[in-house]
Design a binder for these strands. Sequence first.
DNA 1: TATTGTTATACTCTATAACTATA
DNA 2: TATAGTTATAGAGTATAACAATA
Lengths: 163, 163
Amino acid sequence: MLQLVDVSTQNGFQDGMSGNPLPLGDLSSLVGYHLRRASAAFALDFQEAVKGTGMRQVLVGILSIIAANPRVNQGTVGAALGIKRANMVSLINELVDGGLVAREVSPTDRRAFSLTLTQAGEAMRQECTARIQAHEAQMLADMTAQERETLLELLGRIAAKRL
Amino acid sequence: MLQLVDVSTQNGFQDGMSGNPLPLGDLSSLVGYHLRRASAAFALDFQEAVKGTGMRQVLVGILSIIAANPRVNQGTVGAALGIKRANMVSLINELVDGGLVAREVSPTDRRAFSLTLTQAGEAMRQECTARIQAHEAQMLADMTAQERETLLELLGRIAAKRL
DNA sequence: TATTGTTATACTCTATAACTATA
DNA sequence: TATAGTTATAGAGTATAACAATA
């Protein structure tokens, strides 16, 4: 069970910098706005978490998909993450050049590439995942485990709508 | 109060396109990833909602802040929305050129600009807000009012961390 | 000396269209 | 004819540094 809070009287929807109480107008009630801000906050935190590794959000996403689906096609990875084919090319090049991903011509379709993590890629993935999980734990420190689950569940239902 | 759902048995963390069940690996448990996807889904929906108006997420944000704070300073608007001063310039130019925002030198500080919505700006803000609210209602149609409030409250707590 | 807004600039992310090689 | 990957390119969004006018 979760305690519900009256949104309109809460303090959480204001500029966190310098305790600025500037009213946001209709923005306060828009889920999209709060998703945008929360996502940006997590993106900043992510950057700090993986600082020095050369990784970015997209790249970690790709590594994670490949780890969970060895020999997956390049296009399949892109489709899962919402990345256009054209934009996948340089991303995979980056990972291959960095020695994190092995790219082979698919044995069943000579047009396609079969992607697998190298040992270095798997190590990088584990290192990044560990760091990110630690950072997320801090970001969500004031939430109960149940609240975190609820958040994940609600976000999952949203994204399921339209990918 | 809210009913909690067992996340691990839910179907919400998979690629919605074509019922693709591609496993996401460790990504599934990262809040940042789901925030990113949900935010992207809402951004796409936003674009459809305001299609033909010439508006974008940032611009609607600015209109909303100005509406709620007439004669607000340009820099204050940027700070509230996390927009750098340098990037505010062309955004405000765009709104002034479009006849949506009136820009005057502040009477109390001749360095600063005092921003107010024009009648057209207020009409545009109302039109966009109405469209976005209608679209969001559809995006969140399968959530109860309590779940939506909980979502807003949890997102607000996240963004309050680091703006 | 600090701050408001400005300019110039660069880098990332994203989106589209045209191409190739295979199917 | 359709699909996997490629190339080139253009548009947002975002970041920094240097500057002018004013505080």
